[in-house]
Simulated assay, not measured.
Amino acid sequence: MSTLAKRKVCLLGATGVGKTSLVLRFVRSIFSDTYQTTIGTRIETKHIHYDDHEIVLVLWDLSGEDEFQRVRLSYLRGAAGYLLVADGTRRATVETALALHHTAAALLGDVPRVLVLNKADLRALWELDDASERELAARWPVFETSAKTGAGVEEAFRALGHALLPR
């Protein structure tokens, strides 16, 4: 017998880290080089199957703009988990993701989350060294992804989805 669960998941990160591109790659298997700024939030859904379970991830792609911080907090309410997204080519976006984690954790408590280091296709340009990445991985699940090539995207979302399954 299959069980069905529906879970709200928020994507958090600085502007331009690839939150929208990751969602579109995961949900629709598409990538566009055209940059689209998210204003407020964009919502997509995706069904994932795990053995005898099915989960519907309701993905809230939140704006990365600092001036929307108050709105972002209201969008976080009711989230069962979140993806922190950083751009490996911009170290400052990791710091932004960590700050957003503290904000989300204060509001949501200890819910499942993963850290996504996006733009793995540009690994040669990363400002994040291996030691820093290992330090992050000691704190939570870390996935290197590329919305452009699709590498690691499915794995990151599936790992979070698995953590959100009813126990």
Rank of each mutant, 00 (worst) to 15 (best):
K46F: 06
Y50L: 14
Y75Q: 08
A86E: 10
L57Y: 01
S63K: 00
Q69S: 14
E54Y: 08
I48P: 09
A79C: 14
H47R: 15
A86Y: 08
D61T: 07
E67W: 05
I55G: 12
Y50K: 15
L73E: 11
S63N: 03
A80C: 09
L83K: 03
F68G: 03
H49D: 13
Y82F: 15
G64P: 00
Y50N: 12
H47P: 00
F68K: 02
D52I: 10
L62I: 11
H53L: 11
L62A: 04
Y75N: 05
W60H: 05
G40K: 02
L84P: 00
G78K: 07
Q69N: 12
F68L: 12
G64H: 00
I43A: 06
R72A: 03
L73P: 00
S74G: 04
E67M: 07
R70Y: 06
I43L: 09
R70Q: 12
H53G: 11
G81S: 13
A79H: 01
S74H: 07
D52R: 14
R42L: 11
R70C: 07
V56K: 15
T45E: 07
L76M: 13
V71M: 14
H47M: 15
I48T: 12
E44G: 09
Y50T: 13
L83I: 11
D61N: 09
R77P: 01
G81R: 11
L62N: 04
H53P: 05
E44W: 09
D51K: 15
W60P: 05
R42E: 13
L76G: 02
R72P: 01
E67A: 11
S74T: 10
D61A: 10
V56I: 14
L84C: 06
D52G: 12
H53K: 15
H49V: 12
E65N: 14
I43D: 02
S63P: 00
A80D: 03
A86D: 13
D61S: 11
I43M: 11
L59T: 00
G78A: 12
L59C: 02
H47C: 01
H53W: 06
E65C: 01
F68Q: 04
W60E: 07
D51L: 14
S63T: 02
E65M: 07
R70S: 14
A80M: 06
L84Q: 05
V85C: 04
V71H: 09
W60S: 01
G81F: 05
D66P: 04
L76R: 00
L57F: 05
I55F: 11
L57W: 01
D61W: 08
I43Q: 10
D66V: 08
D52F: 07
G40C: 06
G78W: 07
E44I: 07
G78C: 10
H47E: 15
Y50S: 14
E54V: 13
A80L: 05
S63F: 00
R72C: 04
Y50M: 13
S63Y: 00
W60Q: 04
L57R: 00
R70F: 05
F68P: 00
L84I: 08
T41P: 06
Y82P: 01
H49I: 12
R42M: 10
I55V: 15
Y75F: 13
A86F: 08
H53T: 11
R42Q: 13
V71G: 08
E54Q: 15
L83Q: 06
K46I: 04
I48C: 14
